[in-house]
Amino acid sequence: MKLANPAPLGLAGFAFTTWMLSMHNAGWFTGDAVPLVLALAFAYGGSAQVLAGLLEFPRGNTFGLVAFTSYGAFWWSFALFVEFFAAKVPGAFVGWFLFVWGVFTFYMWIATFRANRAVQLVFLALWITFLLLALGVWLGKGGFTIAGGYVGLVTAVLAFYLSAAEVINEAYGKTVLPIGPYESAT
């Protein structure tokens, strides 16, 4: 029995939510826009990724399981933090939250060296995003946060592309949108 590929769902949830938050981080929108990001983080960014991760389990895809469930949990924790706890947590600690997600993303990026080029680029851009956002919090420099927002936008575009490639290539039964060597996302 052929199992459907859950990766495009997880990638789309990740890309959409990352795009929305990154527009705020890049300075395109004020904090008034964040409640929509939080709703999206729960309903799509978090939930779709956790579901995609769990659906990777029967496929035997450890990388997909760990990546999607972890980043789904990231979005849930981010939304919970901003909504209920942000005013009570010192900024430096928030920087550590972002930095440790960067550490996780760095070793996941290393694991992508056995995957296609598109997956590698998503994780590289995400790692840089987390690093810039952490530096922005620690140094109090808006420039790092804005740069993190722009790299986050690049990350989202890469993830949207990979999601689209997985869906379109499978629908057509051939490579329409190339993703690099190994031509399968996860």
Rank of each mutant, 00 (worst) to 15 (best):
M1C: 09
A4S: 15
A4W: 14
N5D: 15
N5T: 12
P6A: 05
P8M: 06
L11H: 14
F14Q: 02
F14S: 00
A15L: 13
F16Y: 14
W19C: 04
M20I: 11
S22A: 13
H24R: 13
H24M: 13
A26V: 05
A26N: 04
W28Y: 14
F29L: 14
G31D: 15
A33K: 06
P35I: 04
L40F: 07
A41S: 15
F42G: 12
A48R: 00
A48F: 14
A52Q: 09
L54P: 12
L54S: 09
F57M: 05
R59T: 10
G60F: 11
N61K: 07
N61F: 14
T62P: 02
G64A: 01
T69F: 01
T69C: 06
Y71I: 01
G72Q: 02
A73H: 01
F74P: 08
F74T: 04
F74W: 12
S77L: 06
F78R: 05
A79P: 03
L80I: 13
F81M: 07
V82M: 00
F85N: 11
F85C: 02
A86P: 09
K88T: 10
V89E: 00
G91R: 06
A92L: 12
A92Q: 11
F93R: 08
V94Q: 06
W96M: 14
W96N: 13
L98I: 05
G102L: 03
V103M: 15
V103N: 15
T105E: 06
T105Y: 05
T105F: 04
Y107T: 15
W109E: 07
W109H: 11
A111W: 15
T112S: 12
A115Y: 12
A115I: 03
R117S: 08
V119F: 15
Q120R: 10
Q120F: 01
V122K: 05
F123L: 13
A125N: 07
A125I: 04
I128M: 08
T129N: 12
L135K: 00
L135H: 01
V137T: 07
L139K: 04
G140D: 02
K141L: 07
G143T: 03
T145R: 11
T145A: 12
T145C: 09
G149K: 04
Y150V: 10
G152I: 09
L153F: 12
L153H: 08
L153C: 11
V154A: 11
V154D: 00
V154L: 15
A156Q: 00
A156C: 02
A156V: 05
V157N: 05
V157C: 11
F160N: 02
Y161G: 02
S163E: 01
A164L: 11
A164S: 09
E166R: 03
E166L: 04
Y172D: 08
K174C: 03
T175D: 01
I179E: 05
G180M: 10
G180N: 13
E183H: 07
T186K: 00
T186P: 05
